Amino acid sequence: IRCIGVSNRDFVEGMSGGTWVDVVLEHGGCVTVMAQDKPTVDIELVTTTVSNMAEVRSYCYEASISDMASDSRCPTQGEAYLDKQSDTQYVCKRTLVDRGWGNGCGLFGKGSLVTCAKFTCSKKMTGKSIQPENLEYRIMLSVHGSQHSGMIVNDTGYETDENRAKVEVTPNSPRAEATLGGFGSLGLDCEPRTGLDFSDLYYLTMNNKHWLVHKEWFHDIPLPWHAGADTGTPHWNNKEALVEFKDAHAKRQTVVVLGSQEGAVHTALAGALEAEMDGAKGKLFSGHLKCRLKMDKLRLKGVSYSLCTAAFTFTKVPAETLHGTVTVEVQYAGTDGPCKIPVQMAVDMQTLTPVGRLITANPVITESTENSKMMLELDPPFGDSYIVIGVGDKKITHHWHRSGSTIGKAFEATVRGAKRMAVLGDTAWDFGSVGGVFNSLGKGIHQIFGAAFKSLFGGMSWFSQILIGTLLVWLGLNTKNGSISLTCLALGGVMIFLSTAVSA
Rank of each mutant, 00 (worst) to 15 (best):
I4N: 13
V6W: 08
S7F: 01
D10V: 04
V12T: 01
E13C: 08
G14W: 10
M15V: 12
S16M: 08
S16F: 02
G17N: 04
D22F: 07
D22V: 03
D22P: 03
V23F: 13
V23Y: 05
L25F: 03
G28P: 02
G29H: 00
G29L: 15
M34E: 06
A35W: 10
D37I: 02
P39Y: 09
D42E: 09
I43M: 15
E44K: 11
T47W: 01
E55R: 02
R57W: 09
C60H: 07
E62C: 13
S66T: 07
M68P: 00
S70P: 06
S70A: 11
T76E: 06
Q77E: 14
E79F: 09
A80C: 09
Q85D: 04
T88W: 10
Q89S: 08
Q89F: 07
C92F: 09
K93T: 12
L96S: 08
D98L: 03
G106Y: 02
G106D: 01
F108I: 08
K110E: 11
G111I: 03
T115H: 09
T115D: 07
K118R: 15
T120W: 07
S122D: 08
S122V: 15
K124R: 07
K124Q: 14
K124G: 01
M125Y: 07
E136A: 10
Y137C: 12
R138M: 05
I139F: 06
M140Y: 14
L141Q: 11
L141N: 09
S146V: 00
S146G: 15
Q147D: 07
H148R: 05
G150S: 01
I152N: 15
D155T: 00
D155V: 09
D155Y: 12
G157H: 09
R164L: 08
R164S: 09
R164W: 04
E168V: 01
E168S: 14
V169F: 07
N172V: 03
E177C: 10
E177F: 08
G182T: 13
G184K: 08
L186S: 11
L188S: 02
E191W: 10
P192S: 15
R193D: 06
L196H: 05
D197R: 03
D197P: 01
D200H: 05
L201P: 01
L204I: 07
T205R: 08
M206R: 02
W211G: 07
W217Q: 07
H219I: 12
L223N: 10
P224N: 08
W225E: 05
A227C: 01
G228A: 08
A229H: 02
T231R: 09
T231P: 09
G232I: 02
G232C: 00
P234C: 01
N238Q: 11
N238H: 12
E240W: 02
E244M: 15
H249N: 01
R252S: 06
Q253G: 05
V255S: 00
V255G: 03
V257I: 15
L258E: 05
S260F: 12
E262P: 04
G263N: 11
G263C: 10
V265Q: 13
G271Q: 12
L273T: 14
M277S: 12
G279F: 06
K281A: 13
G282A: 15
L284I: 10
L284E: 03
F285W: 15
G287P: 00
L289K: 03
K290Q: 07
M295T: 10
D296W: 08
K297D: 04
L298A: 02
L298S: 00
S306P: 02
S306A: 15
A311K: 12
F312S: 12
F312N: 08
K316I: 01
E320A: 14
T321H: 06
G324F: 10
T325V: 06
T325A: 10
V328F: 05
V330S: 02
D336K: 13
G337P: 13
G337N: 12
G337L: 10
P338M: 11
K340T: 03
P342W: 13
P342E: 07
V343F: 04
M345K: 00
A346V: 03
M349W: 11
L352F: 03
T353F: 15
V355D: 00
G356F: 08
R357T: 01
L358W: 10
I359Y: 07
T360F: 05
N362S: 08
P363Y: 04
V364S: 00
T366K: 01
E370C: 06
E370G: 09
E370Y: 04
M375C: 03
L376V: 15
P380F: 13
F382W: 08
I387F: 15
G392T: 00
K395L: 15
H401Q: 13
S405L: 01
T406D: 06
I407D: 07
K409R: 15
K409W: 02
A410W: 12
F411A: 05
A413H: 13
G417K: 09
A418M: 11
A422K: 03
A422S: 01
V423D: 02
G425V: 00
D426V: 08
T427M: 13
W429S: 01
D430N: 15
G436Y: 07
N439A: 14
S440F: 05
L441K: 05
L441A: 03
K454C: 11
G458C: 11
G458Y: 10
G459K: 13
M460E: 08
S461V: 01
F463V: 15
Q465N: 06
I466E: 11
I466F: 15
I466Y: 11
L471W: 11
V473L: 15
W474K: 05
W474N: 04
L475T: 09
L475V: 11
G476F: 09
G476T: 03
G476V: 06
L477D: 08
N478Y: 09
T479F: 06
K480R: 15
G482I: 08
S483N: 09
S485Q: 09
L486W: 13
T487N: 05
L491S: 10
G492F: 02
G493H: 06
V494D: 12
M495N: 04
T500L: 01
S503Q: 15
